[in-house]
């Protein structure tokens, strides 16, 4: 809001600002959940509710979502958009509310320079394995995760296989305790 006010002053336009309401879902659990988070943007993606969130607010939002009835975190994954977006990675969290029969997907932009995200384990303990998988495959690390280690690849593996710049078929097989290809 303050940014908009400054913009108006600079441009010298003095007519009353037209408040463009940000799109919100129809009144219900979801609308009540998103409403207090000013930075959260809601959209429909192929008919499903998606909330785009700054990563600093992830924990607060997750706690609010759990209180609002989203009991289960079914999935945490990530996408590597490489150069297609300014922030290379996107973290995707899927929540389910059995009480309300709703699903909600959170998407968070994660820049390549600082690939860290607060861990959801304190709110949803079941995110543990999924976050380890994201760390293993994308190199996105989770703050305050109880066990931030590789889960699928060997402990001494180099690189993160699901990143787009990790080639297919071009990486020699890595054997433990032997000549290592960098």
């Amino acid at each position: 809001m303050s940014d908009n006010a400054e913009d108006r002053e600079r441009s010298g336009v003095d007519h009353a600002p037209v408040a463009i309401p940000r799109p919100l879902p129809e009144a219900g659990v979801l609308a009540n959940l998103i409403e207090p988070f000013a930075d959260a943007a809601w959209e429909l993606s192929s008919g499903q509710d998606v909330v785009l969130l700054p990563r600093a607010q992830l924990l607060d939002f997750a706690a609010a979502a759990k209180a609002a009835g989203f009991e289960m975190c079914v999935d945490v994954t990530a996408v590597d958009y490489q150069r297609a977006r300014s922030d290379r990675f996107e973290l995707v969290v899927n929540l389910v509310s059995m009480r309300h029969g709703e699903r909600l997907r959170l998407r968070l932009a994660v820049p390549a320079e600082d690939p860290t995200v607060p861990s959801l384990v304190s709110v949803y303990p079941g995110a543990n394995f999924f976050e380890r998988e994201v760390f293993d495959m994308f190199g996105i690390s989770f703050d305050d995760h109880p066990d931030m280690t590789r889960i699928l690849m060997p402990d001494d593996w180099q690189g993160h296989p699901l990143r787009k710049d990790f080639g297919v078929g071009s990486v020699p097989v890595q054997f433990k305790e032997s000549h290592r290809v960098t």
Binding site: V74, D75, T77, Y81, V92, F129, E133
Partner: peptide, 15 residues
């Protein structure tokens, strides 16, 4: 696909 992720039930159930 740019990305295809399978949410595997066994993976979560192992927890």
């Amino acid at each position: 696909p740019l990305r295809m992720h399978i949410r595997a039930p066994s993976f979560a159930n192992l927890q």
